[in-house]
Design a protein around this nucleic acid. Sequence first.
RNA 1: GCUCCCAUCGUCUAGAGGCCCAGGACACAGCCCUCUCAAGGCUGGUACGAGGGUUCGAAUCCCUCUGGGAGCGCCA
Length: 476
Amino acid sequence: MPHPVVTRFAPSPSGLLHLGNVRTALFNWLYARRHGGRFVLRIEDTDRARSDEAQIGALMAELGWLGLDWDAGPDREDAAGPYRQSARGAFYAAAWQRLLAADLAYPCYCTPLELEMARKAALSRGEPPRYAGTCARLDEPGRAAREREGRAPSLRFRVPSGQDIRYQDLVRGPQRFSSDELGDFVIRRADGSAAFLFCNALDDSAMGVTHVLRGEDHVANTPRQQLLVLALGERVPAYGHVPLLVGTDGAPLSKRHGSASVADVRAAGFLPEAVVNLLARLGHSYPVEGWLEPAALIGHFDLSALGRAPAHFDLTQLQYWQKEAVRRAPAATLEPWARGRVPPGEEARFIAAVRANLTLPPDAAEWAHLIYGELPCAEGAVRTAIVEAGEGLFAAALAVTAERVDYARLITALKAATGRSGRALFQPLRAALTQRLDGPELAQLIAVIPERQIRVRLAAARDLASRTARHEAANR
RNA sequence: GCUCCCAUCGUCUAGAGGCCCAGGACACAGCCCUCUCAAGGCUGGUACGAGGGUUCGAAUCCCUCUGGGAGCGCCA
């Protein structure tokens, strides 16, 4: 095994973990696991102002929640670390020195304002707004003069001219760029911090990353990063660019599409397995339909099955996978949905009774109320069902349940007493006991509704039916 | 403004010149099963963005248009 696969996820800890980002993280993870390789987590926190420890913790918690485990990362350091860029200053400084010494980089004294004006000017001339190379040929006196003006320089990489850069994109196939389309780019900001293009590429090489799957917004970065890595004499990883995730309307996925971040879907109560089953198929097709356990997700993952068109994230698809996930979830996963809403100790029995009717936690809350709560007076179709059945049914039911509640005994007795069966029997009973016409099997429900509530509800139904009957008789 | 990429049912997708008047899944509708809902089973409608080529033959190849996405930063 000459080249063990190493992939990575390199988020910047600013803001929430976006679904589009985790999808690329997932692809990298799947690819590494598929090939028995390593998956590493690197925190890109060079931009100090935008990062904080709490965010890093949250980010790791969310990845872990999804089941994406990493072999090395900020909490699992190894020889290739440190895995947070804020701790890699010395390493970057050494690289800048080497580039400077070889004249492959130069200080740039242009101010943000000057650059902005140059960009606008280029744009109005119909040219791409790339760096013009103003400081590229500055000699020592020129630099000294600018230093005296108090300008803090950034450091730019000197992009060679007239070079052809080609690479084989893992998902887009052969790519070709001319270095002349690339402006000299900043590798160290004026404040001394490392710029993305630079530290991202450098760290990938230093950490032995062999395959980089990332969003297609990085395609144009690839030739720059290759040039840079090559200039430093390091190894270049293979790159694959996956299309971005968009909302149902085709616009980039954002808040207004509902759930756009891992935090959102998690807060809504979606299970990680559901999220992963969906994400793994957005822009990637599996040869098998239906639910896949992590091992199968890994086993069937295939780079050549990655698509090149933007994929739409659709909440109704997530709902479907969620139902599948709930169906398979161990009781312990679902019990928290019940906690605090059902009598202590009843969680397991409650979940067992209603799980087929659950998709998200609010469903559990609703059923908990219908089962254990005080129900108001019946209305609408529920009321009609009760009234239509008549007082006798409920009176008989109360008689049979006076001592204890036994489902089989109750049904048998009611069939005998009323001559009713099937829908004519169950529907009014269901209506009286849950105030719903749909729901889990009655046997299941009766097993969890407290006996006292059963009698209260049956009595309420009986009274409602008799009151209505008298009322109608009086009106006649 | 310039450059690059993409384009099959509402959505996820299969399809790499004849196997496709386009297959599967989700969603939707109907039926069956069933005390109801869900699940399950069956059935149905809905798509190759448009126009030109190439070819005996095109969803598949080429061109134009249209639509979408991305990039051109001291943002990552």
